[in-house]
C-alpha cells in the first residue's frame, strides 16, 4: 500500500531562483526515493479536544472587532480518491487588513491591529468540511525583487491520515492582479494546479449584511488503487 506520487508539474521543485530564498536552501543532492512504510503511512491524530470551539473565528479573539472586510472561508478536504477526510486539524495564519503580520520580523510600514492576531484552527467534520470567519488580508511588499508585492493570501497547514499527506499551502483570492507577478504562485508549472490555489467567491456561504463567502477546497494525496481496494 502506498500513496500516489504527484502528477508532473502539479508540485513545485525545491529550487526556483525567481523566489530568491530557495537558492541557498534547496537541496542539491539527488533525493532518495522513500518506500511508503508504516512510518510514512501513519500520522498523528488530533481532535476537538486539541482546540477551542472559537478558534475558527479570527474576528472574536480580542475585546474589539478587527478592522477590515469580514469574510467566511470554508470548504472541503478530500483525498485524491474523492474521499472526505474527517477529523483533520487545519491551522491558518495571515496578515491583517493593512497587510501587516503580527510578527517581530515583519517591518512593513503598515499599522498593526490590536484586535487581530491572525491565527485560527479548525477540525474537519464528517463530510470533510471546515469553516473560518476572518477578515480579508491585505497585500504587502516583500524584498524578493524590485517592487515585489505578495497577493492577498491565507496560509493553510493540514495534517492528513499519513505523514506523506502533510500539506502546507496558501489560499489566494479571485481576480487578484498581483498573482501573475508572484513567484510563489508562478512556481507551480501546471497552470490548472496553480489556479486551484485561488478560492472562489461563494454566494452560498455569504452571510447577508455581514460577510462575503469564499470557498477553498483542498485535496490531499490519495492511496494508489490496488485490486484489493477500489477507490470510492
Amino acid at each position: 500500500m502506498s500513496y500516489r506520487r504527484p502528477y508532473r508539474g502539479t508540485q513545485p521543485d525545491y529550487l526556483f531562483p525567481p523566489y530568491a530564498s530557495t537558492v541557498k536552501r534547496a537541496p542539491s543532492q539527488p533525493l532518495v526515493v522513500l518506500p511508503h512504510t508504516l512510518s510514512e503511512l501513519t500520522a498523528p491524530v488530533f481532535g476537538y479536544s486539541d482546540i477551542n470551539p472559537d478558534d475558527n473565528d479570527l474576528t472574536r479573539q480580542h475585546k474589539g472587532e478587527p478592522l477590515g472586510e469580514r469574510i467566511v472561508v470554508s470548504g472541503r478536504v478530500l483525498d485524491e480518491n474523492s474521499r472526505p477526510l474527517e477529523g483533520l486539524l487545519i491551522e491558518i495564519w495571515q496578515a491583517n487588513a493593512a497587510g501587516r503580520y503580527n510578527h517581530r520580523v515583519d517591518q512593513h510600514d503598515a499599522p498593526l491591529d490590536p484586535n487581530f492576531t491572525g491565527a485560527g484552527r479548525a477540525i474537519t467534520n464528517s463530510e470533510g468540511r471546515y469553516r473560518f470567519v476572518t477578515i480579508r488580508p491585505g497585500e504587502y511588499p516583500w524584498r524578493n525583487h524590485y517592487n515585489a508585492w505578495r497577493p492577498a493570501h491565507i496560509h493553510f497547514s493540514l495534517f492528513g491520515p499519513a505523514i506523506v499527506t502533510r500539506l502546507i499551502t496558501q489560499m489566494y483570492f479571485p481576480g487578484d492582479p498581483l498573482l501573475e507577478y508572484d513567484p510563489m504562485f508562478t512556481c507551480v508549472p501546471d497552470e490548472k494546479a496553480r489556479n486551484r490555489l485561488i478560492s472562489l467567491f461563494d454566494w452560498e456561504t455569504t452571510i447577508p449584511e455581514h460577510a462575503l463567502g469564499y470557498r477553498f477546497d483542498i485535496v490531499l494525496r490519495g492511496r494508489e488503487a490496488t485490486p484489493m481496494e477500489t477507490p470510492r
Binding site: 508540485q11 513545485p12 520580523v105 499551502t169 507551480v188 490519495g222
Partner: peptide, 23 residues
C-alpha cells in the same frame, strides 16, 4: 474520477503566528 492533490506552498517567514500554539 480522481482528483489531484493541492499544490504545496512555502510556509513563509511568519510561521510562528500559526504554529507556535502547538509547539
Amino acid at each position: 474520477m480522481s482528483l489531484r492533490a493541492t499544490t504545496s506552498q512555502t510556509i513563509g517567514p511568519y510561521l510562528r503566528i500559526g504554529l507556535e500554539w502547538m509547539v
